[in-house]
Design a protein around this nucleic acid. Structure first.
Lengths: 218, 218
DNA sequence: TCAAATTTTGACGATACTTCAGCAATGGTC
DNA sequence: GACCATTGCTGAAGTATCGTCAAAATTTGA
């Protein structure tokens, strides 16, 4: 229902019908309609976190492991194309406030775990000598650049494309920009010195057992 | 009402009371509650587009003009801290579908105009020799990197900060990352060769007549 | 076998969007 | 000043849906 008709199209009465119980029973499990949406979202987010963990354990250069996270992200979106549309419902303050504390805490735990996986790669990169951060730059800085782009890209592409971008493959541009920012940080090997397209294919097959999504490797 | 209580807190009855007309009259001007929100949002977006136009006309190096857009963005957020929270309501598909075509078209026109301003700067940069894009890279690529980060940053910071980021000044990190990606594209002068902090202050004062927001210049 | 405990039910109350038939005000004409 | 046409305004009524809760149904276990 959420995927087809969105927040306003999700109807507690119809859910009760679909599961062949009554509305009251649904409310025994979820405090509100919003709480139910949060529960759905938590399930998918947990699957996403697990994919990130697997990706980070790829055995290769640290920048390849960052790439592996990107591949995991792309495969996740292919598997769960509606996840972010659901998540963005919960970002509205007036809706988030109707979620139970328990579920909200689970949400934060899952997201934090994902971030920790990424931060550890940065730490490993510094230890391995692949990356040097200037004095005063927080560890999370490079991954924040990737994360903001990923989130922003989803937001932008989930609505109608604007005329200036109609004929542009934005996913390819996004991936180029991931490379640019890591190059900007001097995270080695730089994109000119390594075939990351080949790495992406290898990661996709060896970690997730499926081909890399379109537009990621060339 | 939107700023204080969000989408669910906006009440057509209370709007009618506040303006001292009846509900029916409100509906003479807006097709639905969602349409009213879209109208509010269009007004603010038009103000934003105007600020971008002013910023782009700054008389300086092309990369300074990009910086000027960033300064405009930051000042805009200071002036309209609730704008993006409202905009994100309209991004929900089930809500966007209740907006009249007229207002939706105005929305697209305003946004496209903003993008065109940015694309023109990229064009000028190439003409001036400040930037060289590799064969096959679309003109919008560098600005897409900035735009996705800006959108993503707003999204991320509009909800509770996650534990790994609690003590990090994310806005400062964002601005550093803007620099990194432009450096990654080799857009001159590189951040090591120019005092962009000083430029930001100068732009802020000369274009908008107010000091630069915290965390942008050092 | 049966009473206590648990689960389920669906009618009901509450809230809020949206409509529309009718009323009020305005402006123009003679 | 009377009249009418047009425009603007009203708020009760219609509709939809969330969330509750007392009562009914079912299960448990002694």
């Amino acid at each position: 229902m959420l995927a087809e008709r969105g927040y306003l199209g999700l109807n507690m009465e119809r859910i009760a019908e679909a599961i062949e119980y009554s509305k009251g029973t649904v409310y025994q499990h979820f405090a509100s309609k919003e709480d139910l949406i949060a529960a759905l979202c938590n399930d998918t987010a947990a699957a996403r976190a697990e994919m990130f963990r697997k990706a980070a354990s790829f055995d290769g250069r640290t920048r390849e492991r960052v790439l592996a996270i990107g591949v995991a992200d792309a495969i996740f979106i292919r598997r769960h194309p509606d996840h972010f549309a659901v998540e963005s419902i919960l970002d509205l303050e007036s809706i988030a406030s109707k979620i139970t504390d328990e579920r909200r805490e689970q949400w934060i735990r899952t997201k934090s775990a994902m971030m920790d996986v990424l931060t550890q790669i940065v730490r490993d990169a510094i230890d391995a000598g692949d990356l040097r951060l200037p004095e005063g730059t927080p560890l999370c800085a490079p991954l924040y650049g990737l994360w903001t782009q990923s989130v922003g890209h989803y937001r932008i592409t989930s609505s109608e494309p604007l005329p200036p971008f109609e004929n542009v493959d934005l996913r390819r541009v996004l991936w180029q920009n991931y490379g640019r920012i890591l190059d900007g940080y001097g995270w080695r090997p730089l994109s000119g010195d390594w075939d990351y397209g080949a790495s992406a294919n290898q990661i996709s097959e060896s970690v997730f057992g499926e081909p890399a999504p379109e537009g990621i490797a060339r």
